[in-house]
Simulated scan of single mutants.
Amino acid sequence: MKRFWLFMPLVVAVVLGAVLFAGIGKDPTKLDSALVGKPVPAFNLKDLNNPENSLNESLFQGEVTLLNVWGTWCPSCRDEHADLMWLAREKKVAIIGLNYKDSRDDALVWLDRLGDPYRKVIYDPKGTLGFDMGVYGAPETFVIDASGVVRYRHVGVVNGEVWEQILLPVINDAREKG
């Protein structure tokens, strides 16, 4: 029995090493999503700007759209905000916001100060839609085709490089497939 305990640190070290080695070289922005290829989950949540209005998955019908998950508590969301403004204004990209686990008042002040790149903002204070979408945190951005099907999930900040190298090709492909 004493021998078993002598080898226990070695066993733990080997197992831990195998787990860590498996993660080396993997891109943390490429988290698989079970939703890719499936429709946006059904939801019924309030419009951040007009709480008397409810929003649902029909928001994603008719054109390729980005769904951007953000919160005022998220420093990286602030980092990407100017790029989202640029995409909405200059590139005419349809962006729907998902205000995730946030305060309505804080979110409204944020958009008033920094600008509002979103066509609509889904208010998700409890994270229910975020949970159904498999969101780990913010920011995350999904490409959703004109039929409401999730085509891609990007974890992390959207900037010019991410736009050109990742999102634009996915959007163009989704537009071609109609």
Rank of each mutant, 00 (worst) to 15 (best):
Met1Glu: 13
Lys2Asn: 13
Met8Arg: 01
Met8Lys: 00
Leu10Cys: 10
Val11Pro: 02
Val11Cys: 12
Val11Thr: 11
Val14Ala: 15
Leu16Val: 15
Gly17Tyr: 07
Ile24Trp: 13
Ile24Ser: 11
Asp32Cys: 01
Asp32Trp: 07
Lys38Asn: 12
Val40Tyr: 02
Phe43Lys: 03
Phe43Asn: 02
Asn44Ala: 15
Leu45Asp: 04
Leu48Thr: 06
Asn50Lys: 14
Asn50Phe: 12
Pro51Thr: 07
Glu52Pro: 03
Asn53Asp: 12
Glu57Arg: 06
Leu59Trp: 07
Leu59Thr: 08
Thr65Ile: 07
Leu66Pro: 00
Trp73His: 14
Cys74Asn: 08
Pro75Tyr: 06
Ser76Cys: 05
Cys77Ser: 14
Cys77Phe: 02
Arg78Gly: 09
Asp79Leu: 12
His81Ser: 08
Asp83Pro: 01
Asp83Tyr: 12
Ala88Cys: 05
Ala88Asp: 11
Arg89Asn: 15
Arg89Lys: 15
Glu90Asn: 15
Lys91His: 11
Lys92Met: 07
Ile95Thr: 02
Ile96Arg: 03
Ile96Asp: 07
Ile96Thr: 08
Leu98Asp: 00
Leu98Ala: 01
Asn99Asp: 15
Asp102Met: 10
Ser103Gln: 14
Ser103Glu: 13
Leu108Asp: 06
Leu108Arg: 08
Asp112Glu: 15
Asp112Ser: 13
Leu114Phe: 14
Gly115Glu: 06
Asp116Phe: 03
Tyr123Glu: 01
Tyr123Pro: 01
Asp124Cys: 11
Asp124Ser: 11
Leu129Asn: 02
Phe131Pro: 00
Phe131Trp: 10
Asp132Asn: 12
Met133Ser: 04
Met133Ala: 06
Val135Gly: 00
Ala138Tyr: 02
Ala138Gln: 10
Phe142Leu: 10
Ile144Glu: 00
Asp145Ala: 09
Val149Asp: 03
Val149Phe: 10
Val150Leu: 13
Val155Cys: 03
Val155Trp: 06
Val157Ser: 09
Asn159Leu: 05
Asn159Tyr: 06
Asn159Phe: 00
Glu161Asp: 13
Gln165Tyr: 07
Leu167Asn: 01
Pro169Ala: 08
Pro169Tyr: 07
Arg175Gln: 14
Glu176Ile: 05
